[in-house]
Design a protein around this nucleic acid. Structure first.
Length: 396
RNA sequence: GGGGAGAUACCUAAGUGGCCAACAGGGAUGGACUGUAAAUCCAUUGGCUCAGCCUUCAGAGGUUCGAAUCCUCUUCUCCCCA
């Protein structure tokens, strides 16, 4: 499979494939690498597997000698990408943005080689920080209200009588300006980014540059089939623990497996087909192992799989249970649970107990008024809430 | 600038003076079943020193024995006109 074919396999739309093919050929002939732009706004701390799809593609380009231009949207993050949002993002402080940016780079670094010469990392505050109001007006004049309002997100919000703020309309223009500033040859993004990518093309043309090729990648859906998002809890974070990643992947719906294999693993198509032909549980195990091995290591994947089988299929108690120290004494069970973090409130703990989801040392307790003695110098008490929350409690 | 509509719990959304910690659905959590898939069923879904009490219906005041519901002001949003 050549580079172009591999790119097409991981993308949902390429504008245009012809242009890309020519660019690749020209670059090969001249030895001049293509500048592949990928922007990410440091609006939160977790990069998840869904974000990783375009990043994998970026890496693919890098492997073939092209230059990733990674844009940390520390300017745009202050504003917030309205893509797919039904509400406005809360504004972030400079501090938040900085912390997030650092963790982002760390996580992206596990996939793409970020070292000097191999990759260019830019922050868009570099140019946005210098612009004054008149520069903004000029930027605003590069498109029209009607054009910007065409986007689905805005149209939808207008239709639902939700607010669309003026500054949100500037977002695509800002992203477009990024492309102009870094003279991108190609820009990658999730398939909800098509509008923004297009804007870059348009603005480069106005600026007298060769318009970038836009490549969008399919959206990797969350484990429950909805859009992958931290707020739904259906995401797999790149900085998550092996056991966590493994478990999350195992909770994926069967329907999603084929797509996950293609987008989230580097396995070749024929091998994927072979695995999918077998038992769905085995296939999912393979998927989960592969992903854990990618993010962490083979060894971690092996351990995660074994721990999973023990805990959920054999219902054994896991061996890495967090230990919480409390003062020795007599506690009402709900209060103790709240203290050690098994529940936000005593009321919630109480509900768990009433629902039969709480065990002490393996025995179900459904008496809300149960007093628990925590005595010094004794074996820790094992508290369990639900299937997967375990805590050891010890006096100290 | 003028006129109209609206803000209810995680989300959608009912409730227009006491029967309201607030209908219903979604989501979430716990339980049964199981492959931590799907489907199905049951329970829970403000807090607490929990048969009781306390704090909630955008915010601040007010009327009333009693307010999510009525009045006044404030903030925010949408629609129509300019």
């Amino acid at each position: 499979m050549n580079l172009l074919q591999e790119i097409l396999r991981l993308s949902s739309e390429v504008i245009s494939a012809d242009q890309l093919e020519k660019m690749l050929a020209k670059s090969e002939a001249s030895g001049e690498p293509l500048r592949i732009k990928f922007g990410i706004d440091p609006t939160f701390t977790d990069v998840h597997l869904g974000h990783a799809v375009p990043i994998r593609l970026l890496h693919l380009f890098q492997k073939h000698g092209h230059l990733p231009v990674l844009i940390i949207g520390d300017g745009t993050a202050r504003l917030g990408d309205p893509t797919g949002r039904n509400d406005q993002r809360p504004p972030l402080t400079v501090q938040d943005v900085e912390t997030n940016a650092a963790t982002y780079l760390e996580q992206i670094g596990t996939i793409v080689d970020l070292s000097d010469g191999k990759c260019e990392v830019r922050r868009n505050s570099e140019w946005f920080g210098e612009m004054d109001f008149f520069d903004c007006l000029k930027l605003a004049s590069s498109s029209t209200a009607a054009r910007l309002l065409e986007r689905d997100d805005f149209k939808k919000r207008m239709k639902e009588n939700l607010p669309v703020h003026l500054h949100e309309m500037m977002y695509p223009l800002m992203q477009g300006l990024d492309s102009v500033k870094v003279k991108a040859d190609v820009e990658l993004g999730g398939n909800d980014q098509l509008f923004n990518l297009h804007m870059g093309r348009q603005m480069q043309e106005r600026a007298g540059q060769r318009p970038q090729v836009c490549i969008t990648t399919p959206l990797l859906l969350g484990t429950d089939g909805r859009k992958m998002s931290k707020s739904y809890g259906n995401h797999v974070g790149l900085n998550a623990e092996p056991a966590d990643i493994y478990g999350k992947v195992m909770s994926l719906s069967d329907e999603g497996m084929a797509e996950w294999f293609r987008l989230a693993t580097g396995l070749p198509d024929d091998q994927i087909e072979g695995v999918l032909a077998g038992h769905p549980r085995e296939a999912k195990d393979k998927l989960a192992r592969t992903i854990v091995a990618d993010v962490h290591s083979e060894h971690a994947a092996e351990a995660a799989a074994a721990a999973f089988v023990a805990q959920f299929r054999k219902k054994e108690v896991p061996d890495d249970i967090p230990l919480k120290m409390v003062e020795a004494g007599s506690y009402s069970l709900p209060a103790l649970m709240k203290d050690v973090g098994l529940g936000q409130s005593t009321s919630e703990a109480r509900r768990l107990i009433q629902g039969g989801g709480v065990r002490i040392n393996g025995h179900v307790v459904n008496d809300v008024k149960r007093q628990v003695e925590v005595v010094a110098d004794k074996e820790p008490l094992l508290l369990q809430a639900g299937k997967r929350r375990f805590v050891h409690v010890q006096a100290g």
